[in-house]
Design a protein around this nucleic acid. Sequence first.
DNA 1: CACTTTGCCTAAAGTCTATAGGTTTGAGCA
DNA 2: TGCTCAAACCTATAGACTTTAGGCAAAGTG
Lengths: 190, 190
Amino acid sequence: MARAGLSPERVTAAAADLADEVGLDQVRVSEVARGFGVKTASLYSHVSGSHDLRLRIALLALHEMAELVTEAVVGRAGRDALGAYADVYRTYARAHPGRYAASQLRLDAETAARSDGARHAAVARAILRGYDVEGDEQPHAVRLLGSTIHGYVTLELGGGFSHSAPDTDVTWTRVLDALDALLRSWPEPA
Amino acid sequence: MARAGLSPERVTAAAADLADEVGLDQVRVSEVARGFGVKTASLYSHVSGSHDLRLRIALLALHEMAELVTEAVVGRAGRDALGAYADVYRTYARAHPGRYAASQLRLDAETAARSDGARHAAVARAILRGYDVEGDEQPHAVRLLGSTIHGYVTLELGGGFSHSAPDTDVTWTRVLDALDALLRSWPEPA
DNA sequence: CACTTTGCCTAAAGTCTATAGGTTTGAGCA
DNA sequence: TGCTCAAACCTATAGACTTTAGGCAAAGTG
C-alpha cells in the first residue's frame, strides 16, 4: 500500500493546522492520523505522543513568530517598530489561535533553550535601544512590553473584550501609544 | 452504604482543588469521583460532564476573585489601590493556578452575563476614578490595565520570565509604577 | 540481487466520557 | 410505625482515545 510520507515535521504541521481549527486542547493523535489517512498507531513512530505533539506545535509557533517579528522590525525604530512588533503577535494569534495557544505552554528549561524564545526577547531589546532604555532597566521593560502585548492578545482572543463597547482596534492603538509614551519617559533606575 | 453527600457545589470545589494541583486540562470527571470514593457515573447527576465542570470552576474562580478584589480596594485610591488590585490577581493565580486558568476560558454570552465578570470591570473603573480617567476613555484604560496585569501574571506563571535574570518581584513593582504613571498622565481623547 | 532499514499495519490493554436503567437511602407524613 | 417518593448512588455498556508490542512489506544500500 502507498505510504503517506509522514515525518515529524509534516505531522507537526498538520497538528498545528488542526489546533488552529478546533483548538489546541482538541488536538487528538487519532484525528491527525485520520487526516493523513493512516492508522493512529503509525504516528507514534514520528512523535512520541500527544504531549510531544503539543510541544512541537509550540516550537513551531515560536519559530514562525520569531521569523515574522524579526522581519517586521527591520528598518524601523520607535513607535513605528513597536507597532510593527506588536501587530505581528496580534495578527498571528488571530490567524493561528491554536499555534498561539501552544506558544504559551510551559516549556522545561531544556526545551526552552532549544526554542526560538530567546529571539523574541532579542527583538524586544532591539526596540528598546531606540528608546534609550538600557542596562539593568531593559529586562523590566521587556517584561512590561511582553505582558501588555501578550495580555491584550490573549484577552481579545478569549473574548474578554467582546462584552463591552468600543472597537478593539481603537483600544489597540491607544495601548501602543501608551507603551510608546511610557518607554519614551522610562524612569531612571531606582 | 453511606452517601458521599455530593452536590454541584461540592463537586465543583473538589474539581477546582484538583485543577490547582494537577492543572486544569488534567481535570477528569473520573478523578474527581475517585476523590469522593464514588463511581464516575454518579457525578453525572450533579454536573453534566467535563466541559460543564470546567465552566463551573471558571465561575467559581471569577466569583472568588471578585470578592477578593472588591475587598482589596476599599479605602484605597491611586497607586495604593492599583497595587492592591493587581496583587489580588497575582497572588490568586499563584495560589490557585488551575482556578486562574479556568477564569480565562472563553464563556458564551449567556454564561458570561451570569458570571461575576462585570464586577471585575466595575472595580477597575472605580480605580480609574481616582485618576480622573473618565468617559469614553475609561474602557480603553480598563483594557490596558487588564491586559498588562493579566499578561504579566500569565507569563510569570507560565515560566516565561524564569529563564532570564532579575527578580520578578522587582519587575512587578516597576510595572505597577509604570501603569500608575501612565494613568496619571492619561492622554486626552483624540 | 540480497540485506537492512523504515513506514505503516494489526492487535491488544488500559483509561476516559457519557448514557440508560436499577437499587438504596432517608425525609416527610398518615 | 410503616408507606411513599425523590434523590443519591450503583452496575452495565458503548464508544473513543492513548500507547505499546510485534509483524510485513516497500524503499534504499552495497
